[in-house]
Design a protein around this nucleic acid. Sequence first.
DNA 1: CTGACTACTTGCATTATGCAACTAGTTGTG
DNA 2: CACAACTAGTTGCATAATGCAAGTAGTCAG
Lengths: 171, 171
Amino acid sequence: MTENQRSGCPINLTLEVVGDKWSLIIIRDIIFGGRRHFNELLTGSEEGISSNILADRLKTLLAAGILSKQDDPTHKQKAIHSLTEQGIELLPVLAQMSSWGRKYLPVTEELSIRAEILDEGGPKFLADFMDELREIHLGAPPKRRKGPAPSARLRAAYEAVLAKRRKILPR
Amino acid sequence: MTENQRSGCPINLTLEVVGDKWSLIIIRDIIFGGRRHFNELLTGSEEGISSNILADRLKTLLAAGILSKQDDPTHKQKAIHSLTEQGIELLPVLAQMSSWGRKYLPVTEELSIRAEILDEGGPKFLADFMDELREIHLGAPPKRRKGPAPSARLRAAYEAVLAKRRKILPR
DNA sequence: CTGACTACTTGCATTATGCAACTAGTTGTG
DNA sequence: CACAACTAGTTGCATAATGCAAGTAGTCAG
């Protein structure tokens, strides 16, 4: 474990922490998928991370202060992974990547609906979503909200696309 | 060259294109460092990319439509690398990473001054900078601007930090 | 008490990255 | 014209990262 840092540039340092193919996928699944346990992260997403990589990345993200880990009181072997404030503030990065990917890459409809909601909601929606994440992950006091929570809005939009799809392509 | 795509999620697809330790460093150097030639990209930055990786990434970014390449009329062996609109629109992603890195990672002052300007300038500065990049890389007609160009403002701020540093630590 | 589930680890194959040296052609200098 | 320096790479080889399948020790529900 040698201490080799390439430079003190903020973009470079950020890339050294999350600049790989999996770290931000994990953060994405925690933020948008509500996953908190190892197994949920392992089996929940389409990309299919392998268990050794997941274990390694969780360790790295923990060490970097992006995640925290606590025992699940309901099960002695389960651990609950939470975002720290630092982790929650990766949401704008994800949102920008999401927006760019949606615009320029061959995304599928059901998976890009979240990108659409994020785009349309703008900074206000992003801020509301981060507040909700602070409630969920940091135990912050709930804020007054008009209408459904941001996560619920994302989920509802996703379900709507799936429902539409089932009508068009039944079974 | 097998066609293996992990998923149609915009975040995932974006990571498949620029989710490595070098691609965004190259884009950063083109955007903020004004580098256009192979050698400038090779030797210009602190991180020290090696020539085979640089060649490979330029090829990938070209294929992805993020960069374009044209002959340099002044030198038969030089090629000029330009950003496409798609590449220019990676600026908001870089800006978010920059902002996050500046807030949470051990950045150096002279390299984080750009992050500070970007943060303070907000979306307006970003939009202006993207317009300037369109002029430089796409030959877009110049827009009316009050005050110095965004790139000039960034450069000036960087020089100012360097000058201050030289006073404190002479020689 | 058994079978499924928990969060991992281990071993091995494949792929990506990093380093140094090399190359074919080009250009500026004397 | 001769030559050194510069152009954008390539090549070969070592090391590091990733991916896959299988295994593990402890836990829990029926």
